[in-house]
């Protein structure tokens, strides 16, 4: 891709992404007083990751069966609190092996 066009896209992408992350972190210095809002913020990360994972994970390998197999392994290992790396690598390995047979 030609550099002038690429750099324009890059600037917009990176600028917007950074501002979204930076403004709340730089501007909010005090403690949020509202109990509701504090509870809301406590739940946000779990809700976000849940919604990002499902159902998208089932399309992540380009094949539903291998994705389901990988997801199942990730769920079991995650339940037993294995490390991020173990879970991610095992999911990939199982998805790969199952993919070979399809």
């Amino acid at each position: 891709m030609s550099w002038p066009i690429f750099l324009k896209y890059l600037l917009v992408m990176a600028g917007v992404t950074y501002l979204i992350r930076m403004i709340p972190l730089a501007a909010v210095r005090g403690k949020v007083k509202s109990r509701f809002f504090r509870s809301f913020l406590y739940y946000v990360p779990y809700a976000v990751l849940g919604a990002m994972t499902f159902p998208d994970v089932f399309a992540s390998t380009g094949n539903l069966i291998s994705a389901i197999a990988g997801t199942a392994v990730a769920l079991v290992l995650g339940w037993f609190e294995k490390s991020l790396l173990t879970v991610a690598a095992s999911a990939c390995a199982v998805a790969y092996v199952v993919g070979l047979f399809l």
Partner: peptide
């Protein structure tokens, strides 16, 4: 076949993060 299987890595990571809590 390898690059396709790598696509699930990020989701495996998400699962590993949210399942203990």
């Amino acid at each position: 076949s390898v690059t396709a299987a790598l696509g699930i890595a990020i989701y495996g990571m998400f699962v590993a993060i949210i399942l203990p809590p």
